[in-house]
Design a protein around this nucleic acid. Structure first.
Lengths: 254, 254
DNA sequence: ACAGCTGTTTCTTCTGGCGAAACGAGGTTC
DNA sequence: GAACCTCGTTTCGCCAGAAGAAACAGCTGT
C-alpha cells in the first residue's frame, strides 16, 4: 500500500474479492476471514456489501460465497484483452497446428504476466495454463520477451526486489537476469528452460502496437522431450514470425 | 441499499467501478465523479485504491481511467458462466444454423438477465446483444422463460415495482405480465414480440439443472419480418428442443 | 497574461467503520 | 438428551480515519 490515497475499507474489501477469485471455489465466511486476516465481523460486512452489488454471490443454503456474475460481465466490458485476443487468435492457431504444441498469449501486469488466451496442443502431455491466470514475469518466456523490449529503466517496476527461484533452473540473481534480458533482446525471443515449470521449455516473442511499444507476447510451450535442438531453432523462428504477424495486424509496420 | 451491513466506502467505490464498466470506455476523473454523483476528492481516492489493486488502470499521459485487467481475469475464474457456455454452445450453434438467426444464452441476475453467450445470425440485418450485457427480465423472452418456471412467490424478487415500458408492445401492468407468465409456463416457451426492441421477435425456452431448477434460458431472436407464422411455430419447437438438449447435458432427466 | 479547466494536496470535522463480545442456530460427541 | 463446539449474525461504544471544502498546481486555449 504505497499510496496515501488508499481508502482502507475499499482496499480490504477488494482483497476479499481477490481471495475469492484466486481460490476458484466457493468459500465460507470463516475461511475467507482467516485467509485474508480480517476479523469475522469486518469480512462479513464486506461480503454483504460486495453481494449487494452483485460482485459476490451468497448461497443461503450452504452459506458459501463465490464470485458473482457481475464480475464476469464487467470483465467482458474490458476492451483491450478482447480486441487483442480476436486479432491474435488466427495466427496462434496456425502456430499451434504447425507444431501441435500449446500457444499462449499474455500481457504484462505489474510483476506478473496474465494469460489472455491460449490454443492448446492436442497431445495428451501438454502445457496448460489458466485463462486469466498469472505467473511471474521473470520466470516465463512471455515475461522475458516483453521485458527485454522495454527500456531498461522500466525493468525494475516489473521485477521483485528478490528473485525467488521456482525451479532449479530459475534465475537467482537480478544481475544474471538482466544479462539474460539483454541476450533476449538481441535474439528476438525470450526463453524459459524449465524456469517456470520443471521440464517445460517455452519460447516467447514480443508483440508491438502501432507506436512500436511492446504490449503483449506469444509463446510456444512444450515438454523439453519434444523440443530437440532442431525443432527448437525452427520453432523460435516461427514464434517470432507469429508475433510479427500479430504486430502487423495491430498496425505495426516493419 | 436495503442492508444494514453495507460499508459505504466499499459500496460507493464499487459504483465507481460499475460506472467505468457500463460506459465501456476510458473516462476522466471529473466525468466519473459527475456521473456517480460523488465529490471529486472521494472519487479520486477510490480510483487510486481500485487501481492499486489492478481493478482499474490509470493512463498517466491522458489521465484517463479504464477497467483493469484484473477484473477480466477475475471473471475468468467464475465457474458457472464458463461451464454452462461450454455445454450449451454446440446446441446453440445447431439452432443458429437451422434458422440462421441469432441465438442467445442468458441467466437471471436480480431484475435483469445477463447475456452469457451468443451465436449470431450470418445475415446483415440481425439481432445482436452484448456479451455480459443486461436487459430487464420482463421485456425479454429469455427472462420470461426463466421466470415462468420459477415458483410464483419468487416472481416478485425479479420484477420491479413499476414496469416501465421500453416499447409500445411492452407490458404496462404487473397483472398482465403475470397472466402472460402463466401462459408462458403452459406453452413451454417465453415470447417477446417487440417488447424489448421494436420490430424484434424472440422465443426463449428454459434450461434446467439436475435438480429440475431453471438456471438459464436460450432464445432465438429475429426481425419480425423473417418470423412468419409458419417459421414461428417451427422455431418455437426447435428452441424448446435445444433447451431440452442443454438441460440433458446438465443432468436433467425427462 | 489571464481565465477556466483539469487533477492533486492539505486540513479539520465528526461520521460511521471497527472489532470485542454476546447471541443463537445447527451439528457432533459422549 | 444434555453439554459442547463452531459458525454466522447482531449489538454497541469508541475513536480511527473517511469525507469534502478549499486551496494548490499544471494545463490549454483565447
Amino acid at each position: 500500500m504505497p499510496n496515501d490515497y488508499i481508502v482502507k475499507p475499499v482496499y480490504k474489501a477488494l482483497q476479499v474479492l481477490l481471495c475469492l477469485g484466486e481460490e476458484r471455489r466457493e468459500m465460507a465466511l470463516s475461511e475467507i476471514c482467516h485467509r485474508v486476516g480480517l476479523p469475522k465481523t469486518t469480512t462479513f460486512r464486506y461480503l454483504q456489501t460486495l453481494s449487494a452489488c452483485g460482485f459476490v454471490t451468497h448461497d443461503p443454503n450452504t452459506d458459501l460465497y463465490r464470485i458473482g456474475l457481475r464480475i464476469w460481465a464487467l470483465g467482458q466490458m474490458a476492451r483491450e484483452p478482447l480486441q487483442l485476443r480476436e486479432l491474435a487468435l488466427p495466427a496462434m492457431r496456425e502456430l499451434r497446428n504447425r507444431f501441435n504444441e500449446t500457444v499462449n498469449l499474455g500481457v504484462l501486469d505489474g510483476r506478473e504476466i496474465v494469460y489472455l488466451d491460449m490454443v492448446e496442443s492436442r497431445r495428451s502431455l501438454r502445457m496448460q495454463a489458466q485463462l486469466g491466470g498469472r505467473d511471474p514475469v521473470y520466470t516465463t518466456a512471455l515475461g522475458k520477451a516483453m521485458l527485454a523490449f522495454l527500456p531498461e529503466e522500466r525493468w525494475v517496476e516489473h521485477l521483485p526486489v528478490r528473485l525467488t527461484p521456482r525451479t532449479a533452473a530459475s534465475y537467482g540473481s537480478i544481475g544474471g537476469l538482466r544479462d539474460e534480458l539483454r541476450r533476449t533482446r538481441e535474439r528476438g525471443y525470450g526463453l524459459d528452460d524449465g524456469e517456470n515449470e520443471e521440464g517445460a521449455r517455452c519460447i516467447g516473442a514480443p508483440i508491438f502496437n502501432q507506436d512500436g511499444e511492446v504490449i503483449a507476447a506469444v509463446s510456444l510451450s512444450a515438454p523439453e522431450a519434444r523440443m530437440s535442438e532442431r525443432t527448437f531453432t525452427e520453432a523460435a523462428a516461427a514464434v517470432i514470425q507469429t508475433a510479427a504477424v500479430i504486430s502487423q495486424r495491430l498496425g505495426h509496420d516493419h
